[in-house]
Design a protein around this nucleic acid. Sequence first.
DNA 1: GGATGCCGAGAGAGCGCTCTCTTGACAGGG
DNA 2: CCCTGTCAAGAGAGCGCTCTCTCGGCATCC
Lengths: 335, 335
Amino acid sequence: MTTVQRPTLEAVAARAGVSRATVSRVVNGSTTVAEPIREAVTRAVAELGYVPNLAARSLVTQRTDSIALVMPEAATRVFSDDQVFPGIIRGVSQELEAADKQLVLMLAGSPAGHHRVERYTTGRHVDGVLFASLHGADPLPGTLARLGIPVVVSGRPLGDGPVPYVDVDHVGGVTAAVRHLVASGRRRIATIAGPQDMIAGIERLTGYRSAVHDAGLPELVAVGDFTRESGSAAMHRLLTEHPDLDGVFAASDLMAHAALRTLREAGRRVPEDVAVIGFDDIETAAYTEPPLTTVRQPIVELGRRMTQQLLRLAAGETIEQSVMLPTELIRRASA
Amino acid sequence: MTTVQRPTLEAVAARAGVSRATVSRVVNGSTTVAEPIREAVTRAVAELGYVPNLAARSLVTQRTDSIALVMPEAATRVFSDDQVFPGIIRGVSQELEAADKQLVLMLAGSPAGHHRVERYTTGRHVDGVLFASLHGADPLPGTLARLGIPVVVSGRPLGDGPVPYVDVDHVGGVTAAVRHLVASGRRRIATIAGPQDMIAGIERLTGYRSAVHDAGLPELVAVGDFTRESGSAAMHRLLTEHPDLDGVFAASDLMAHAALRTLREAGRRVPEDVAVIGFDDIETAAYTEPPLTTVRQPIVELGRRMTQQLLRLAAGETIEQSVMLPTELIRRASA
DNA sequence: GGATGCCGAGAGAGCGCTCTCTTGACAGGG
DNA sequence: CCCTGTCAAGAGAGCGCTCTCTCGGCATCC
């Protein structure tokens, strides 16, 4: 491998006829450099193709200019076609690009993976850590916060400490969905809930419960895990237990999609016999049969806001403990 | 921010009563350390919660133990629900985890983003660079290769230099698809092609052309860009220009999905009137109406193999210039 | 018994950068 | 005319680590 020798500050300094310190000043945009000297340095930098060595810089500044985005690698979620994680990645990436920082992506699936994440983040190899959709009560965000390492999580954390978070208005979205069903005359409204170890699953079920309660309707609940498979199974169960149901709110579009098929296979027409509403508004939702009415959540915006909060934290500013993003009911043909 | 003082090698050495060098040896797994000393050091490391400072290590080793994964941020691709990019990320991540290296994700959408990637990668801030699905003839991979920086791209590069790549057998997959259509008696087989500035789009069209040619059938072509929207438009065009078509091969499942709907809206039954085959085998393919027959490509494996190749390259080994992964026809109801 | 070899552990240089401190040049005031 | 203040640029000390080189101790061999 032809590893070309990279020019150092020293080399640039020699070429420009100044000291290392001056080159550093120019490179880092200090204002106390006379114009002719700045120009000479700039020219030398360009001629030599100088690029600062980030390791050396980090060593002295104690900053790394990179942040970690930690995602649970539950294959079914991250890599099924629900677009939550790609959306978050995009939002995060956009904000980081604007701040000229790097994104270190860590998938923490296995216990070993989680340990790796813990080691890496507590080792201060990044300037801050973003967590996407925690399962259960992960103590790591709290630990990091206590160590003084900037952390922001998506979704109100189930764990102990006060960790700043950004979340979408699950309850508001679900309420709008259930009200829409009620308004169209549905009286036996079931829900296919999400996993109850994730805040999104919990809140969407809570929202459903209070909404049907407010309407004086019964609770018909089957729990899934956001995936299509679990959605099919849950829909089957609901049909068996409550054959007279006339409305379904599914806590994810994937589950709603599966429910659509299960209903069709069971001979129910959507929306005539049973109205269906999902949650997420993934791209597929507009292409299901019939097109899916669903609650849209601003996923890219979620990633952006998380990142903004983190960067503020890393800059030493104090930030609000929580940020809530609005959701919106998108009406299509299924309800 | 309470920035706790991290223990250094020096501190561990003092506590264990040995020299810095010995601690370094233990931490890096050298064998030339006597057992009692090794134990003492290990204990001191644990007690102090010592974690090596990677910046300092990088500074002297000239390695960063991280690699960059560059993706074009064409929103429609990366973040629609085709699962190509998430799949690649997962494969890459798995291999890197095994090698204990970090993943730096860079989305290179805008020209500014591309410049940032160029600067970052040529600046040797990572030990190697992976490119996912290049558009057009990007000169960057070739440049990096020439600089002696390990590079592996997905899909045969359209550009100049000889850059190692990993790709799937597009032509084989398409050939199987077309043959399947022919075998079921279809004689007017159209294709909705992918973008012709991407190797996947080009090869799938080439495969279609030679396959229909071999069967003595005419070419009926409309070009899309892999998205559902383009798929609808292309299907409309095909129906207008060739109302007698009885088979469609779409170069992506997303386009096939849209074609399914367009055909239905046009009153054509699938597969009775028109058989449809897609490419990718995304999760949604099993849930379309009717379920989509498609060509599966091993996306996670693609990510893994790219990474394996890159790590070999970075380790100074010589690797084969190209690796080809098999595709497989998945028969469902649409053809 | 003394010279030789080997192996384990310490000393110390330096990776490339930032940043404080010092120096030097010049202007202005007493 | 000298002293002080101001500001730009240089000198130099590390940041925390790895790695070569050296040294010391012990076993081996003649």
